[in-house]
Design a binder for these strands. Sequence first.
DNA 1: TGTACATCAGTGAACGCGCGTTCACTGATGTAC
DNA 2: TGTACATCAGTGAACGCGCGTTCACTGATGTAC
Lengths: 208, 208
Amino acid sequence: MTVRVLSKGEATRERILDIAQDAVLAKGFAGTSLDEIIAEAGITKSGFFYHFRDKNDLAKAMLQRYLDREEVLFSGLFKQADELSEDPLHSFLIFLKLFADLMSDMPNGHPGCIVASYVYQDHLFSQDVRALNAEGLIVWRNRFRDRLDRIAERYPPRADLDIDALADMASAVADGGIILSKCLRDPSLLPRQILQYRAYVKLVFSPA
Amino acid sequence: MTVRVLSKGEATRERILDIAQDAVLAKGFAGTSLDEIIAEAGITKSGFFYHFRDKNDLAKAMLQRYLDREEVLFSGLFKQADELSEDPLHSFLIFLKLFADLMSDMPNGHPGCIVASYVYQDHLFSQDVRALNAEGLIVWRNRFRDRLDRIAERYPPRADLDIDALADMASAVADGGIILSKCLRDPSLLPRQILQYRAYVKLVFSPA
DNA sequence: TGTACATCAGTGAACGCGCGTTCACTGATGTAC
DNA sequence: TGTACATCAGTGAACGCGCGTTCACTGATGTAC
């Protein structure tokens, strides 16, 4: 594992993104002003514009970073799961357990999904940010769809199973679970939703 | 069924709420200005403030109306389903089918859930709006929990079933499905998620 | 039926503050010769 | 090793526009006597 040392400027940029992300998940993008970001980051307005061309550029960088981190996280979990079982179904079920456990271990609950946040304010963003957001969901879909196809080969499901919808359901349950957890201020709700999804997958592929 | 005739002022108020809701679901609450709302409604700023004390009051009225309409809609669907079957499981499955069909019939897809939108900008709102938002989710939970309890009495599920999570899963799948549909611009994704939830409920209560 | 008054559903002008963005500039660090 | 220049990571001041809110006022409709 390589740990790149950040230069001074990169560290500031990352700090700006951290602060902006917290704020945006709490108040929305339009509700978050550059003034409050720079105040918390301890820099000036112009310092901000050294790192980002404009506010939309901040939005894009934030989303890109979120997607990249998710990619790293999920590849890691899938890899762990694959090491624990060769069977595609068992491996997938292990993955979902690891995912649920990880969400349980966040003391303040999941801070929120940037993709979901952006979807509810997409008219604020340029076309490329919207496209990037959609791409994030497509990546999830393909990742899960791929796993489910391999499971279906070995454990033939009933004919009417909508595998595409089952793949998308992972995103849906995660995003829905985050909303539940945030709204009701109960961090346990998200991991429990993931475990429901897991139970469904288990049932749907178990021989009748 | 009683149809109240709206007075002139009430009609304007409803129109403001309609316009505001579309805008808020597209751009977020902070991203929606009173200026654009009044321009589209064809009134002046002061006209707006005759109907709402301030912007937060608009947020509250919008949420309250959304919750009330949802209540009417779901009571109706449950009633329809109950008329088609006395069995709690069958009735619930019919309800879910009706719900999915209704979502399918929206030509441009579901416009978005105010509750989910507010969750991702809750620091913008006063305490009472946040409480109302949480209450909306609690109402769903209780409604579904109640149905599921009655089903579980007649169709004993396995011991480890998390009925609370299964009840919440209806909201999660609906909110997650809306996000999928909106982000990927595919109205079919939401009803298909609801049908996945239906398939899970069916499986989980069918004797092993 | 006429008149006085109250309420409804707004108008019009002004308010000050906060917003995102621009511009010319700068001190510290890195690189070439 | 010294010097010239370039790049990095910002500063400080100003910009105009759009924002939510306030205030005094008004014409049309409804109600009481």
